[in-house]
Write a protein that binds this DNA or RNA. Structure first.
Lengths: 123, 123
DNA sequence: TTTTATATTCTACATTTGTAGAAAATGATC
DNA sequence: GATCATTTTCTACAAATGTAGAATATAAAA
């Protein structure tokens, strides 16, 4: 079962930290912060959905991700590519390169990355 | 206001065609097709949200997109980058390059694209 | 050990979404 | 003009979502 929008948002915070207590997570929200029970509800739902686990420590729980961000994202992006680019990563790349606001710096970086990857495959 | 999942799906069909009548859209669904009223509901909601318009022709309407796919997608992808890659397209690119199933062919294509874009910026 | 602070769960409720039947509208056909 | 076919709108409803108060549990502090 998928994470909802706001669960995903919270998940980000957990990924960022690797682990976190509820109150720490609450901290991370920009003002106006949600009610703590709201976060608690989300945490419970996310636990039920199997995206996070926790270790009970004293009176509270330290939550941690059960799903790697890269895995979650990977599913996500492949969906996206499928949906918007007729399942062609190349189409996507093309779009990506021209339509996002990459600086020249970043383009060069990307060039490096591609080269690297090509090299990697040849050894 | 954003399109929901199933509205987005329908939007794809409309983008693909440039324009379409309700019954044509219904056709495009794989079996089991939804009830025609379901599609009709979606079309109405999408119209209300301002994503599509229509031209009345005889007893029915020819719907067409009011939002370009590339624009819609652009917003989408920039969101994604922001959410998952700390607002760094380069991070994203890196991930993209290594984690999607690009063939060597496609990687080279991407290389071309980047090069092209760099060149373009220098003239 | 009583009180307090806070985390967790329960309950609640409005909104959005997916889905579609019932009803209405209206052009097409006989 | 009456009937038919089909589109569109209305109405409906269950499920998911965003949000949070009330109630409960329990560790920490006094």
């Amino acid at each position: 079962m998928k994470l909802s929008k706001s669960e995903e948002q919270l998940m980000q915070y957990i990924w960022e930290n690797g682990q976190a207590f509820m109150n720490e997570l609450l901290e991370m929200y920009p003002d106006p912060k949600p009610a703590s029970t709201t976060v608690a509800t989300l945490l419970k739902r996310m636990t039920d959905k199997g995206y996070i686990g926790y270790k009970q420590l004293g009176r509270s729980r330290r939550y941690y991700p059960l799903v790697k961000k890269s895995d979650y994202f990977s599913r996500h992006i492949n969906n996206l590519i499928q949906k918007y680019f007729d399942n062609s990563p190349a189409n996507f790349a093309s779009f990506f390169t021209t339509e996002t606001d990459l600086t020249e710096e970043q383009l060069k970086e990307l060039q490096q990355i591609v080269e690297q990857e090509l090299k990697r495959r040849h050894q």
